[in-house]
Simulated assay, not measured.
Amino acid sequence: MKPYPPITDYMATKLVTFLPDMDIREAIDILLKKKISGAPVLDASGQLIGMLSEADCLRILIEGPYNHEPSSAKIKVGDYMSGRVKHIESSKTILDAAYEFVHSGYKRLPVLEEGRLVGQVSRVDILRAIQKMTPAVKHIPDSWRGREPAMPTYKQTFYGKNS
């Protein structure tokens, strides 16, 4: 069996990152302009300390000054970022990442190598990897040879009859 490709083959390496003392309105503007749903938050020395997601940003409407009079006070990324960051090591494969995505509910994971941020892998990146893969063997049990079960009609697509 062929080993699964490493996540480093599919991860993004040119990342948008935020600093914890950055104004959250500026971060929201960047998320919207770049059409991304979140990004890592790094401290001054470049260490990963959090993630800022769309959901984190929505909290400012629910919890913050927008419930009252808009404040002129600077709302910082560090006040709303998720500080408990789930990450994945650069030595892992796309199978490891898929497992994490399925069991954690996260949409993206920062990729660390020796504690340093080197990239980010998303669910979409893993889907791209799957798209490039082809099954090595179509397994049909010996007891089914010559009488393989047909795909149920309700699972057949319009264009392909599962041929």
Rank of each mutant, 00 (worst) to 15 (best):
M133G: 08
E113N: 11
A55W: 12
Y99S: 11
H139G: 02
Q120S: 08
Y66H: 07
D142I: 05
H139N: 04
L31R: 06
P135Y: 05
L48Y: 11
L19H: 13
I36G: 04
G38L: 02
I30T: 13
I130G: 03
P70N: 08
Y66T: 02
D23Q: 08
V137Y: 13
F101Q: 13
D29S: 13
I62W: 05
S104K: 06
V102H: 05
R25K: 11
G146Q: 02
I60R: 14
Q120Y: 00
L112N: 06
I130L: 15
L112C: 02
R84C: 04
G119I: 10
G119Y: 09
S82G: 12
R128P: 00
R128N: 13
Y106E: 14
I126P: 01
Q47A: 12
G50Y: 01
E54W: 00
L48T: 09
E54L: 00
D56L: 07
L19Y: 13
L31I: 10
A98Y: 02
V16R: 10
Y80E: 02
L109T: 12
G64M: 08
L52D: 10
I88P: 02
R116G: 00
I24V: 14
A136E: 15
P70K: 11
S37V: 06
D29P: 00
K86T: 14
I28A: 15
Q120M: 15
S53A: 05
L109A: 10
T134F: 02
V137D: 06
K76I: 00
Q47Y: 10
M81R: 09
I75A: 11
M22A: 07
H87I: 01
D29V: 00
H139K: 05
E26I: 03
M133P: 00
L109V: 10
R116Q: 13
C57A: 12
S45N: 12
R145G: 01
K76E: 09
K35H: 09
V85W: 01
I28T: 14
P20D: 07
Q131R: 09
M51N: 06
S104M: 06
R123K: 12
H139S: 04
R108G: 00
I75Q: 15
S53C: 03
P141V: 05
Y106I: 11
F18G: 07
I75H: 10
S71N: 10
K132Y: 01
G119T: 12
I49D: 07
E89Y: 06
I36D: 08
D43M: 01
I24W: 07
V124I: 12
P40E: 05
A98L: 13
S90Q: 08
G105V: 10
I140R: 09
S71I: 03
D29N: 12
I75K: 12
I60Q: 13
E113F: 04
P110G: 07
E100R: 01
E89L: 05
G115R: 08
D56A: 04
W144P: 01
D56K: 08
E100Y: 03
A73T: 10
I130H: 06
I94K: 02
D142P: 07
V137T: 12
H68Q: 10
I62E: 14
P65N: 13
V121F: 04
T17P: 06
Y66L: 13
L127V: 11
L109I: 11
L32G: 13
H87M: 03
I94T: 14
I94A: 04
I126V: 15
F18W: 07
S45L: 05
M81L: 06
S91R: 10
S91I: 09
P65S: 15
E100A: 04
V118T: 13
E89G: 04
